[in-house]
Design a protein around this nucleic acid. Structure first.
Lengths: 335, 335
DNA sequence: CTGTTAGCGCTTTCAG
DNA sequence: CTGAAAGCGCTAACAG
């Protein structure tokens, strides 16, 4: 591999000049520039990014931490991030945190040790103080799916409370009075906020939240199944079940089918996320939709703006969810 | 950020010694080691991986190129790769190639410029010669989902021909004689090989391949829909349709439903990949299964073995698919 | 077992 | 506008 040194020799100029044409920095005569470029081409020169990083203390790479790779959700987030960043000539180093505190912190250390210029984090387990400390002591970070007080413009968020509210509201307006709720793990911000929205909608309709009709799941399909089973078992009546994500709604749908419950006649079901595979559900699932990959894209833009000084980039920090009504929800009829 | 220099000063030893304890290389007294470690801890020292890379010309990072991030398929591959590599302390730099020649080559350049120690590639568009040249001139590469002659131990592959054969065979043994086939883009190796397997199975049963009953799709759902529509339109009878992946099978299933065709009574359908969301199909889709994330894991192991000298690591280069019979296929009855 | 000494390839003042 | 020179933080011979 040719080095800058050989280029400078062949072009008959100094190292510094080669560096200048490479970076379009400083003033260089058109003529000199041409000579240098020719030399570069002749030697098939490719700058060594490691050496460049060491000298400039910029790596042009941003570290990304997500809970996991598979599943429809994070794939879309990653896609949004990578596309935006790569267009800007930045590299993306990705790692998984598995929603586990030790693992998330290790992942962050991992990225930091790699001298990333910035970090984009979708973390569940680490606490706000840790993030704030990180913000202060290390490279800039952008957080997806979480509100960190005082760092609002470093956060890309979905209004989960509103989503929970809308889901519930859209069922209430159809006449349902007894609602069950299958939540995510309540220590997670998104799960917590969605439930808050649910409660707000109930309150607005003069209904009391009934803790017995709440089942705390883990966002996975099996917990949706267990959730509905449990809710049916305790014998409290309800005509609709709100699920905090589509996977759990899938589980609930499965149990309903087993039990011979007609959806939506006997039970209305609504999910959250509008992941692509809900298209295969029968009946088609009503759910809450929002721009998943858009959130990844915005996180990337925030980095571009904050770290690389792309001043006039528009960043949308908060995303609004909307209701998608399909056929798993219907009016409450009968008693 | 503390440097190795400060550590050496505080510990009262030389740079070299600090480097030694850091890398567990060379012999260092337990006592000295302890002193150094204490100094490191006190300063919160974290080695600068960039400097380390420049000096050692190893980056401990491997570049990964996949066609895209979303979809169930690549998420699992990535997951397999990242888990294995991270356990070995290596970084993963990921980028997308979009099944486009220029884009794939740019992605590879991109990773190369980042001085990756090795590359794991799932490429569709670049040709074998390019890959061979790469193998020769740059860092070691491992290729997933493709056979490159002469580089067998650098390839992680699924036996697609066998998969196509098994899918077809499993329908033939049930008495079907007229089969339609919806393929992927035939310039892609996997699509091509699956079709070859299909033909072999037909031949084995003394049946002629009928080119009119072949529709070339693009692996996406919509092309499965179009495919079945087209096949029905031309009026050649068939009692089963083999789809080269599950997405296209989903499309075919949708069209069948619209047309009032009963599955499997009027038409048997089989897919390929056994992606997780087939669980939501009704009827349940028969398909071809194989270890997707296992292939990612093996690619990572191959890298560990080839590049980082992990000699006793087992690498499985070829994966065998199996048939998963569910309820979208039945015996051929009637004429 | 430990220290000395060159670099790795590039950026970046500071002079000229 | 161009060149010289001093590192960036660490590794890897080579001595001792």
């Amino acid at each position: 591999m040719a080095t800058i040194y050989e280029v400078s020799e062949l072009a008959g100029v100094s190292l510094a000049t080669v560096s200048r044409v490479m970076n379009d920095s400083g003033k260089v005569t058109a003529k000199t520039r041409k000579k240098v470029k020719a030399a570069m081409r002749e030697l098939g020169y490719r700058p060594n990014s490691i050496a460049r990083s060491l000298a400039s203390s910029r790596t042009d790479s941003v570290g990304v931490l997500v809970p996991m790779f598979y599943g429809p959700f994070y794939g879309e987030i990653l896609s949004g991030i990578e596309t935006e960043l790569r267009d800007a000539g930045k590299h993306v180093i990705i790692t998984a945190g598995h929603s586990d505190k030790a693992s998330e912190e290790a992942g962050i250390e991992f990225l930091l040790s790699r001298n990333c210029d910035a970090l984009i984090l979708h973390v569940d387990a680490v606490d706000d103080d840790y993030l704030k400390k990180l913000c202060r002591e290390s490279v800039p970070i952008v957080v997806i799916g979480r509100h960190v007080a005082g760092f609002e413009d470093h956060c890309i968020n979905l209004d989960n409370e509103l989503g929970g509210y809308l889901a519930t509201k859209s069922v209430l307006v159809l006449g349902h009075k007894k609602l069950a709720y299958i939540s995510g793990p309540l220590w997670k911000h998104d799960a917590h906020d969605r439930l808050q929205g649910h409660k707000r909608a109930l309150m607005e309709h003069g209904l009391e939240f009934n803790a017995q009709l709440l089942y705390e799941g883990n966002f996975r399909e099996a917990s949706g199944s267990r959730g509905l089973e449990e809710l049916l078992r305790i014998g409290q009546p309800f005509s609709a079940v709100i699920c905090a994500n589509d996977e759990m709604a899938a589980g609930a749908l499965g149990v309903a089918r087993e039990r011979g419950l007609e959806i939506p006649e006997d039970l209305s079901v609504i999910g959250f996320d509008n992941v692509f595979f809900t298209r295969y559900f029968r009946p088609k699932l009503s759910t809450i939709d929002y721009q998943i990959s858009g959130m990844g894209q915005m996180a990337a833009r925030a980095v571009l703006k904050i770290v690389y000084g792309d001043k006039d980039l528009e960043v949308q920090n908060m995303f609004q969810p909307t209701v998608v009504m399909r056929s798993s929800v219907t009016c409450k009829t009968g008693p």
